[in-house]
Amino acid sequence: MTKDKFEPRIIGYLCNWCSYAGADLAGVSRFQYPTNIRVIRMMCSGRLDPVVILETFIRGADGVMVGGCHIGDCHYMDGNHHAQRKIWLTHAIMKRAGFDPARLRLEWISASEGDRFAEVVSDLTDQLTKMGPSPLKGEKPDPEVLERIRAAQRVVEDFRIRALISKEYKLTTEGNVYGEVLEEDYIKDTILEAMDAEYTRNQILMETTDKAMSVKEIASAIDVPSPAVLNHVVRLRQKNLLTLASIDETTPKYKAMGGGM
């Protein structure tokens, strides 16, 4: 290992029953792989909260690998289905926040796939090495990116988004309260729409925490068209999260009321 070479730091969140066991088998079988991964064991991949994944990136991880049982193999029946949906959401919000979703990988690895575990880790390490360090790594993380990921983290902390993503599996398999089974694309679009709105609102709140801003100023700061910003401003005022601070001549200026969403 030379000093100059970039060594990505990867956190692996592995389920106890399959992927962690696959890592053990890689060990027993002496399958060699790069030393970059640090494994955290949890009982089920369904335990992993998108908030924690984003926190891992905020703390500077170059990559995150989530390992679960193959679909159908979950020790807790459908935990991996839930993990799949949480990762889908996290990927989407990372993309929205302009943070490369390829840094987060979900893999199904069974207890008998020691070689696959080694392969996946090697491959991810390679890929991340090529991608270079995360903008949030080290002592001086990129403040702009940090701001955006924090906004993303607030989104996955939000009741509405969490409720939607958690219900998605049941709504598309067993059905809703009317006994209708929803189309996956339909509910996913609903979630994406909600996610996009919440993300923008969080950005608005973050921008206006310290200073009052006009719709136009907000629009240019977060790169969202003014009419859309106005809609969000109305909604945020409805929720008592944003207040009209002043009207400069004819331009109203808004300020966040403090506290998260």
């Binding site: 369904g46 908030v51 839930h82």
Partner: peptide, 26 residues
Amino acid sequence: KGCGICAASCPERAIDIRGFTSEQII
């Protein structure tokens, strides 16, 4: 059984798993 699906899904983030708390994981 401690799988933690509820904790990762709770819209209010009111659920934690003993022995695998969010604080411990972080």
